[in-house]
Nucleic acid binder design. Structure first.
Lengths: 158, 158
DNA sequence: GTTCCTGCAAAGGTTTTGCACCATA
DNA sequence: TATGGTGCAAAACCTTTGCAGGAAC
């Protein structure tokens, strides 16, 4: 009865490559150029599989070979969000995280540790069924939904 | 088959009174005093039924008869959250909202309009069942969960 | 009277914006 | 070469913190 499955890191990485390709196509077909900063953010996001905040991305790029201004990271992420390529995930008291929206569209959600901010994605078929039922009955036209479990990871509980 | 129900505003207001009483009791039994700012926030929250952010509360109090510093509003809300009387609700790109946790403990979630920020609470029995199943299988000890539907209200769609 | 609460102002952290320069198409 | 992307710095924004004065118990 294990309909809920946690995702391994390697799996995200595999589809991340596909996402980068799809994102590049979408960008250029929407009339956007492939600038240095934008490309760097795109590739790092793809290899990380999302789940990172803007400042961490900027930091990693700065530590790596290509340095990118923080403002450009925000601009890139903002554009990607507008194009439906990433999704903003808000956490109270923490910087906004950005999550890939994968081409195949396997939808997922997150379990967040309130102690250290560690995030684990999960997906659940039953949950999605219930959510779409609720969406149909809602008084708004519903575009998306966001489900977050808050808890404490083993390390922080120690 | 209407297991999902939207709540009217009047209904929240009725239970809001009870919440204020319960909150006052909890505060004093926990050794906190009933200062002016704290009481004002408490009463306004009760009459509004939650779903407001710190700055809006401060503004409304300033417009009304009792003026309260923004910092005190944050302090009051923070304390209420620690005591389990309110819940923080994060929304990407918007200030954190605070939501009453009602004495009877009827758990609920929100539908948010991305255009104007209008928020409508809802509760769904099936959703809660699914969420508790997921919580049990989660790799963290799960304390709470947060479900938000994002969409566009009729007014903003017009 | 002591302790806690409050308001103001300043600091902290995140995200956005203005502008001059540079790269892409 | 024309347009749009980038980096830096400054601003805007939300939230927290320090401190002196005032209120609750």
């Amino acid at each position: 009865m294990a309909k809920t499955r946690q995702r391994g890191h390697d799996h995200s990485q595999a589809t991340g490559e596909e996402w980068v390709t799809a994102a590049r196509t979408k960008l250029s077909s929407s009339g956007y150029r492939a600038g240095g900063a934008r490309s760097a953010v795109l590739e790092l996001l793809g290899s990380e599989g999302g789940c990172c905040n803007a400042d961490d991305l900027a930091q990693e790029l700065r530590d790596g070979d290509r340095s990118v201004g923080t403002a450009s990271v925000y601009r890139a992420l903002s554009l990607l969000a507008d194009l439906g390529l990433v999704q903003k995930v808000a956490v109270a008291g923490a910087p906004t995280r950005f999550e890939l929206i994968l081409p195949g569209g396997e939808h997922h959600h997150h379990i967040v540790c309130e102690g250290c901010g560690k995030t684990v994605p999960f997906s659940d078929e039953k949950l999605e069924v219930v959510m779409s039922e609720i969406s149909e009955r809602a008084p708004f036209r519903v575009d998306s939904h966001d489900v977050t479990l808050l808890g404490t990871c083993d390390a922080c509980r120690g």
